[in-house]
């Protein structure tokens, strides 16, 4: 006779990895589930009060604790892009435009997308694992029993925190990337800070940085939504927790990259060159 309930749950074979048809069905079910979760998010948004304390706590977990990772990535993007583009720019006699070129590439595309994809890994997987283990340990059920709406308390707060943290982190990455770029320019060509800033300010328009920052609000929404969805619907006990974390990271990165195509198209339509 099997003895421990938990063990037997882990050993239960999971209906997965079946025919490709089943995979497609799984994908559609996921999109359907995400849609339902989004609708619920906006319904919760329309019904204050919110759990502000929990939102602040999540901002700390999601935002503040990602700061060092984001800073390193920001500096490196700026520096590397400058080093890579210098030879080509010099060949075309456009050395003076390097700061502007770097600023535009970083702010429009590189920093929003790279930061979001990296955070899809760190934050998305973290949320998936956290909610997954709360599901496995029945804490989510206990919240329901306590009349503490788990969607409002867990899901809504995390999505909101992601939507606030992502643009802020992107702004920080943007600025640090410019710093990284200037350091390379300083070393290679002895460019002064004031000249660097002047070149950037003259060359960059609001349509270069605003859409880039704005889209990270949507990427943040995606990370929070997918992470919470995967964790909330985690199945199969402890083993399911790992799967929720991985699925959250993979699905949200993929969605971010696909959404980005859409955003680029929209941005170019609204602000044509």
């Amino acid at each position: 006779m099997s003895s421990d309930n938990k063990n037997s749950e882990v050993l239960t074979p999971l209906p997965d990895e079946a025919a490709p048809v089943a995979r497609w069905e799984g994908g559609l079910a996921l999109l359907g589930g995400l849609w339902v979760f989004s609708v619920r998010f906006f319904k919760t948004l329309a019904r204050p009060p919110y759990e502000f304390k929990e939102i602040i706590r999540q901002l700390n977990m999601i935002g503040y604790r990602s700061l060092s990772l984001v800073s390193v990535v920001g500096i490196v993007i700026g520096a590397v892009l400058t080093m890579q583009s210098r030879p080509t720019m010099i060949k075309f006699g456009a050395e003076a435009f390097i700061p502007e070129m770097v600023a535009i590439s970083v702010m429009r595309e590189l920093s929003p997308v790279l930061i979001s994809v990296i955070l899809a890994g760190r934050v998305g997987a973290g949320i998936g694992a956290e909610l997954g283990s709360m599901r496995a340990s029945e804490q989510i059920d206990a919240m329901d029993v306590a009349a503490l709406d788990p969607f409002k308390y867990l899901v809504f707060t995390r999505i909101v925190a992601c939507m606030i943290a992502l643009p802020l982190l992107t702004i920080i990455a943007d600025l640090l990337a410019l710093g990284g770029s200037w350091v390379v320019e300083k070393i290679e060509a002895g460019m002064t800070v004031s000249l660097f800033i002047q070149t950037v300010v003259n060359g960059v328009e609001f349509s270069d940085y605003l859409p880039g920052i704005a889209k990270t609000i949507f990427f943040g929404f995606t990370i929070g939504l997918v992470g919470c969805y995967e964790g909330y619907h985690s199945k199969g006990g402890t083993e399911g927790v790992g799967r929720s974390a991985t699925d959250a990271a993979v699905t949200s990165s993929l969605l971010i990259i696909l959404l980005d195509v859409l955003f680029v198209k929209v941005t170019l339509m609204l602000w044509p060159y």
Partner: peptide, 13 residues
């Protein structure tokens, strides 16, 4: 109704 969950399900935080 009181519900004692199998693992107690105390809120971790």
């Amino acid at each position: 109704i009181g519900f004692l969950f199998q693992g107690a399900a105390l809120f971790d935080s």
